[in-house]
Write a protein that binds this DNA or RNA. Structure first.
Length: 642
RNA sequence: GCCGGGUUAGCUCAGUGGUAGAGCAGCCGCCUUGUAAGCGGCAGGUCGCGGGUUCGACCCCCGCACCCGGCUCCA
């Protein structure tokens, strides 16, 4: 058989050669680092004879993403083996690798406790120490059903395996570790359990079989596995770091916002510092919308139920809407979960001609959505929030340019807040859809063209679009590498239809415009939450609620401190004086802990010379800096993006 | 909504079937300080809410509210 290495070289091997043989022929270190190999993209166990046809060959090492995937999958098996040994009544369902770890779902009469987890983990370490081989076995589906007869979820899987997925048809594979433990699995796996260097169980949770709440609820155990103890520790450290960045912790700590119990779940109040930051963000939003040619509109928070019936929200979105309000002799009213119908009514308030288009309506619109009680999550998933929502009405000819502009706007917006890495999803027509196919196709093509124009990486999510139209979602990568969906641009064929939205063409005929929903920040609450986590609360100068802390060395410097703060404020810098009687170190610490981006210390020498000890976040202090210089530096750093 | 865990002072958390504690924050005083926590004192709690068991419940039981981790990244 012929194998083509990643460097393009071609090598000949006899039939029956295994991945390990090939790796060993390349180098003993590579053979040692290998956990599996791939041939033409398909992964193979190290000890499994390679396919007769050969192909593009690559060694998968433990330190690669693919390698970790294999390792984690194997770790999941070890977890299952441990659980089945310790809990005789348990049956196992599925246990895939996931980002940064793995999980396994079990059915068991009792949920697993913390102590169970420790016992399970200890058992896993025994299994790993025993260095049991993972032996691949292939069998017919009937035989598999017999072997796994006691495990109803495995049987369901076997029955649902599409024969065409497996070469040779009606064959499934399993991996056997011991005489008593084998697990249905496509593979590949590491050669033996001893190859699992660093495995740790993290937590338990409930999970529905196949994610469907109509199915039985299983007990899920999450774990993680890495190629070395060092990597595992680094991962656990990252988890801790992420916890420190948690906006739900930082928000109240920095006095930005809180979720008072008395208010209700998913509902936040903004404190003065957070309120100030929100104002800065909103101001920037308005400035940008203005620059990109949007008009500002306002729509009320409640509307007749009939409006939501017309828009279709009561058909498709009712479970996320607060229940109706009964009013005397009036129709029922509903709190708005979206701004679109209001904007459509503004469009329809007068006859529209092609000369009016594109018409771009924008609103910082507060909406309320009844999120299920288990899913609210700080500002990231709130029940009340404000969207920077806009709706653009355009002719078919204008759509392409409009979408280019929208993407440009979105990226500019995100860059202004310090996000640098983007990735987009283009979601196309799903199976159930409304509207005409040619319109879908035009919109999809125009969206793709806009993405190409913007030059950001994107992938096509086939069939993932909303029933009413295709869309682009823009994701950012934050400071610690997490992805967040931020902005969205969606074409809508449904609402214009439902509301009979039209315009008069140059031929004096009526035509239906394209409607584009877009949100650059999305929910301001969510955007703020992500910003907080991205910066770990240490916001850039232009967003920092307090930009400069002026700290006195001793009481006698208080007057001078206020004088300095006055100069800063006169220059538009948000300065605060800390003239407290504490030690200097204590006051400095307080300023650092509150993530104030600059600190000015004033003492005798400074009063004398008109200077301050000046320190920017993360830098050393510069004693005796003239106040004028400080104002200049802070003004420059605090410039609002434009 | 469902499964699991949790709820004690403003915050972080100890605690026992016999009337509740620490650190930080707050307030007062001393210190007058030159770049990440000076010292002392004071004040602060319906132990989430409601019910039950008990001579007695923060602790045990039941219900509720809220918070946290999850609820296909498809063997």
């Amino acid at each position: 058989m012929q194998l083509t290495y990643p460097d393009g070289s071609i090598h000949e091997f006899p039939q029956g050669t295994t991945g390990l043989d090939v790796a060993a022929s390349i180098g003993s270190r590579l053979a040692k680092a290998a956990v599996a190999v791939s041939v033409d993209g398909a992964e193979w166990d190290l000890g499994r004879p390679l396919p007769e046809g050969g192909g593009e060959f690559a060694v998968i090492t433990a330190a690669s993403e693919e390698g970790r995937h294999v390792m984690r999958h194997s770790a999941a098996h070890v977890l299952a083996q441990a659980v089945l040994e310790l809990f005789p009544e348990a049956t196992f369902a599925i246990g895939p690798p996931i980002t940064d770890g793995f999980y396994y779902d079990f059915w068991n009469p009792e949920p697993f406790t913390e102590e169970d987890l420790e016992r399970i983990e200890a058992k896993m370490h025994d299994i790993i120490a025993a260095d049991q081989p993972f032996v691949r076995e292939e069998m017919s589906a009937e035989d598999a059903l017999e072997i796994f007869a006691r495990h109803r979820f495995k049987c369901e899987i076997i029955e649902s395996v599409d024969a065409s997925e497996v070469e040779g048809g009606d064959v499934v594979s399993a991996y056997r570790n011991t005489e008593v433990f084998t697990d249905l699995c496509r593979g590949p796996h590491v050669p033996s359990t001893g190859r699992l260097e660093a495995v740790k169980l993290l937590r338990t949770s409930g999970a529905y079989w196949r994610g469907d709440e109509n199915n039985p609820q299983l007990h899920r155990i999450y774990g993680t596995a890495w190629e070395s103890k060092k990597e595992l520790d680094a991962y656990l450290h990252r988890l801790e770091e992420a916890e420190k960045r948690d906006h739900r912790r930082l928000g109240p700590e920095l006095d930005l916002f809180s979720f008072p119990r008395d208010l209700g779940p998913g509902l936040a109040v903004w404190h003065p510092k957070g309120g100030l930051m929100r104002k800065l963000i909103e101001d920037h939003s308005r400035r940008m919308h203005e620059r990109y040619g949007f008009d500002f509109v306002v729509s009320p928070h409640v509307a007749k139920a009939e409006l939501w019936r017309t828009s279709g929200h009561l058909d498709f979105y009712a479970e996320n809407m607060y229940p109706g309000m009964e009013l005397d002799s009036e129709e029922e009213y509903r709190v708005k979960p979206m701004n679109c119908p209001g904007h459509v009514l503004i469009y329809k308030s007068s006859g529209r001609s092609y000369r009016d288009l594109p018409l771009r309506l924008s609103e910082l619109g507060a909406v309320y959505r009844y999120e299920r009680s288990g899913v609210v999550h700080g500002l990231l998933r709130a029940r009340g929030f404000t969207q920077d929502d806009s709706h653009t009405f355009a002719t078919p000819e204008q759509l392409a340019d409009e979408l280019v502009m929208h993407i440009d706007f979105v990226l500019q917006w995100l860059r202004d807040f310090g996000f640098e890495e983007f990735e987009a999803d283009l979601s196309t027509r799903p199976e159930k859809y409304v509207g005409e196919v040619p319109r879908w196709e035009q919109a999809e093509a125009d969206l793709a063209a806009a993405l190409d124009h913007a030059g950001i990486p994107y992938k096509i999510a086939e069939g993932e679009g909303a029933f009413y139209g295709p869309k682009i979602d823009v994701h950012i990568k934050d400071a610690i590498g997490r992805r967040w969906q931020m902005s969205t641009i969606q074409v809508d064929f449904n609402l214009p239809e439902r509301f009979g939205v039209e315009y008069t063409t140059s031929e004096n005929t009526k035509a239906r415009p394209f409607m584009v929903h877009s949100a650059k920040a999305g929910s301001l609450e969510r955007f703020f939450g992500v910003l907080t986590e991205h910066y770990a609360g240490a916001f850039p100068m232009w967003l920092a609620p307090v930009q400069a802390a002026v700290i006195t060395v001793a009481d006698r410097h208080e007057d001078y401190a206020y004088e300095v703060a006055g100069q800063l404020k006169a220059a538009g810098i948000r300065a605060e004086v800390d003239a407290g009687s504490g030690k200097l170190g204590e006051k400095i610490r307080k300023a650092i802990m509150s993530k104030t981006p600059s600190i000015l210390v004033v003492g005798d020498n400074d009063v004398e010379a008109g200077t301050a000890g000046f320190r920017l976040r993360g830098e050393d202090e510069k004693r005796g800096t003239p106040i004028g210089d400080i104002v200049e530096t802070l003004t420059e750093l605090g410039t609002i993006p434009s």
